[in-house]
Every structure is written in C-alpha cells, then in structure tokens.
Nucleic acid binder design. Structure first.
Length: 275
DNA sequence: AAAGGCATCAACCGCCTGATA
DNA sequence: GTATCAGGCGGTTGATGCCTT
C-alpha cells in the first residue's frame, strides 16, 4: 500500500507566508511548543500543510535564528565542514548556531561553490580541477568578475582564525549499526569529550553525557580532522573504545579509511601546487 | 526607460528513517 | 514482521529584484 500524503493539498495555502500566518504560527508554538506538525495547522488556524509550518518555523520564525550576512569566519567554516561532511547541510548547520540548513545550502549553491570554482576547486568533490577546466573557469571568472563583485563574493586571501562550535551529538540507541542521525536537537555544549586514533589524520570520537539519555543510551559524535592544531579537535585519549562492539569499530575504520583517502588526495594537490 | 538575463533565497517536493500500533 | 505515521533531510523550483545592455 502506498504511503498517504502528509496532508490534503486541497484548499491549503501555498507560496510565501503572510505576516498574519507567521503571527498565528509563532503564537501557537509559543503557547504549545513545537511538534505535532501534522495537526498543528488546524489547531493554530492555519490553512497550511504541517510540513510547511515546520519549515517556516525552523528556518525563519525560531527566535534563535541569526539574521544577517554569513561572516568570513562562518564562510571558512562551512567550506571546511563541507570538505569533511559533504552535502549534509543539517550537520553543517549544527556547527553554526543560528544558521539553518536551508540557509547554508543556499549560500553554498550561490556563493561558495562559485568561490571554490574560481579557486580551482571542484565544489562537489573538493578536489582540484584539471588544468583545462581550471583555465575555462579562469576565463569565466575574468568575464564574470564584474558580476561576482556585484554579488559580493568575497575571496579570503589569507586563512582566517575560525571560531569553532562543538557539533550537536548524534543520538544512538543501538550500536548494531552506526550511522549519523539526521536529528540533532541537543545542546552539545554540555557533552563531554573523548578521542582519538593516531596516524597522519585524526579520527576523533566524542562520547557525550547526554541529558536525555537513560540506561544504555549514549550520544556519540564523530569528527574528523587532519590538522592537529585544528580547533575542531582537541581531545584526550579515547577511553571508551573497548566498550564499542566490533561492527561499530568496523564502520569507524571505514570512515577512517575514507578520510585517509581524502587526505592523500589533498596531499597530492598540494604537491602539484608546489610546482 | 525598457527588455532580457542573472542571482538569490523562500518554499516545495519526494524520499528516508525511526517510532509505534 | 508489516504497515503506517511523523518528522526530517537534501534537491529543486520559481518568484522576485537587481544588473546589464
């Protein structure tokens, strides 16, 4: 049997939200809290799909949303996180308080991908573009330089010191299969930290004390960095490794392998650049 | 001043995952 | 074990405004 649609689309409003709708949604959530999105529109007196309400709240109405332009620090952090995490926008957003996944995704697609291309990096693979491709991009850059200026795409000549925020830990209820949850709604500042594997790169494991965890439920967060001075990682020796089942370690090994490959690719790129 | 092209970003869509009956 | 629900995610679209010609 096919899955029922999340809501009947008949008679529902679509498109941009009005201030009245915003007000209704905000008031309802302030009074009753988030959640139960499917039934929320009806209770709040909104002719909107529950998903639409959730999106509007999460991306624009939440009081902790940070407004304004992405700062150079955030810009740099997004690039570095994207190199590590790929298009996992919600995970990246979890490291940038006040920023939403949608905002970061849009920013990446409109600003950063172009910026990386102009620097000779493939935004999808984070690898250096081949020479002919680079030349093409250079040509494009020259012809578009005026436009890029107008669009305020900033190129950071020097790397900036980035303010790093701890990620929100991932809730894990079972170790039978380690995976990154898409849900991350926990204040990670309260978590404690362990880590790491040695080697050329570091694989950092965080095992956090999570307030909402009970019994055998713990929060686990995996971070990867190749830079020993990287603020993303500064942890002590990993103490909880022996408690992890083998399947969990196997997945980590796979992650670690992937990361080493990434490092190797980056190293090669650096060598090429040196010539 | 008008037309066309381009960039931006809010919103939608389809799919996935975890929880629950 | 299966079906369904609810929430969440990433990809994509389309309206809008700005810029160029």
């Amino acid at each position: 049997m096919g899955r029922a649609p999340c809501c009947s689309k008949v008679g529902l409003h679509r498109g941009p939200w009005t201030t009245r709708e915003d007000s209704l949604l905000t008031k309802y959530i302030q009074a009753h809290g988030e959640g139960h999105w499917r039934s929320l529109p009806k209770k709040a007196g909104l002719l909107r799909c529950g998903k639409s309400c959730r999106l509007r709240w999460m991306n624009y109405l939440r009081p902790d949303i940070k407004r304004g332009n992405i700062t150079p620090d955030e810009d740099d952090l997004i690039i570095r996180l994207h190199r590590l995490l790929g298009n996992r926008w919600s995970l990246i957003a979890g490291r940038l308080p006040g920023r939403t996944d949608n905002e970061i995704k849009n920013y990446w697609n409109t600003h950063l991908s172009r910026k990386l291309i102009s620097q000779g990096t493939d935004p999808n693979t984070n690898k250096k573009l081949l020479e002919p491709q680079k030349k093409r991009e250079r040509d494009m850059k020259t012809s578009n330089s005026k436009k890029i200026q107008n669009n305020k795409v900033k190129t950071n000549a020097e790397p900036q010191k980035t303010t790093i925020h701890h990620p929100k830990p991932v809730r894990v209820t079972s170790f039978s299969c380690f995976s990154m949850s898409r849900n991350s709604s926990f204040d990670w500042n309260t978590g404690s930290r362990c880590s790491s594997f040695g080697g050329d790169g570091e694989l950092c494991i965080e095992v956090n004390n999570v307030p909402w965890c009970s019994d055998n439920v713990i929060g686990v967060n995996v971070l990867i960095s190749h830079d020993p001075d990287d603020d993303l990682l500064k942890g002590s020796t990993f103490e909880g490794q022996s408690q992890l089942p083998t399947s969990y370690n196997g997945t980590l090994e796979k992650l670690y392998e992937e990361y080493l490959q990434l490092l190797k690719a980056e190293e090669n790129d650096h060598v090429q650049l040196d010539y």
